[in-house]
Design a binder for these strands. Structure first.
Lengths: 138, 138
DNA sequence: TAGTGTATGCAATGGAAGTGCATTAATTTG
DNA sequence: CAAATTAATGCACTTCCATTGCATACACTA
């Protein structure tokens, strides 16, 4: 529990009850989660609060936003010391068409991308869709 | 004009007036366009018809859908003989934060991606965000 | 020409993201 | 410690886009 507080404080986020709970929830999830996922879990809480909690996490580089192409924004905790830098931190995301889960393949960093002259890259999003290992083995 | 018809017929799409016009519009655009873009251009036409026209184009592999992370679906014509295959056809998309335009970098195919064991890739989406060459030179 | 299938237009729905404002909690300051 | 300021939460509401249902119009075929 105290660890959770440390994580928040380290990123300059005040450890409110709600934030601790959401952080815990995120930590327990292996795959990326949507606002609705969080909402369904914390039935008593207000959607807006959860929305803003996630937003806060993203802004303080505790979590990152994932656009997996489903149209529903997903969130996942960043790795330790992540600053969402293109070269070092960004990894690819995998969306499984069967189980509908989106996961971070943190070991698979975004390959180096060469752009045409005068283009400046500030952010890269790489999503692979298909069938994940779990669904494939069934 | 006749060429437009040929394009449609080649992909088994009946060349209605609306479709010819939308196809023309797409041909003239260098960057990807949204449904709203088309709607704004063809003021007299109904949004649904345009929506379905684009949908038809995508289904018949005449155009591809682009999720550039803005939350607004974009469309762009496929290249000649494109079948949206991962290895050969998929290219990266660039979204400029300044001019807000999304463009196909068709010369930049998606780099080969190695996935963990038992993962099957069926589709890949690679979007780079930043500043495009036009905006960068101003 | 009648009939069938496809395309179009209108209306309405649904889902998600986001905002404004009032209320409550927490923190700072006199 | 109390007052005052700031931040977090909860509720209501708005906006925007994607999508669907159904009725009408058009086009092609027998």
């Amino acid at each position: 529990m105290i660890e959770l507080e440390q994580i928040l404080k380290k990123n300059n986020v005040k450890p409110t009850a709600m934030r601790l709970l959401v952080l815990q929830f995120l930590l327990n999830k292996k795959s990326a989660i949507s606002l609705t996922d969080v909402e369904d879990y914390f039935v008593k809480s207000d959607r807006t609060t959860l929305y803003r909690t996630l937003k806060t996490f993203v802004e303080s580089e505790l979590a990152h936003k994932i656009d997996d192409g489903t149209g529903i924004t997903k969130y996942a905790l960043c790795e330790e010391n992540c600053h969402c830098e293109i070269e070092t931190d960004l990894h690819l995301h995998f969306h499984c068409k069967l189980c509908n889960e989106t996961s971070c393949l943190t070991d698979h960093k975004i390959p180096n991308i060469s752009l045409p002259k005068n283009f400046i890259a500030e952010d890269v999003n790489l999503v692979v869709k298909g069938i994940c290992n779990k669904c494939n083995s069934n």
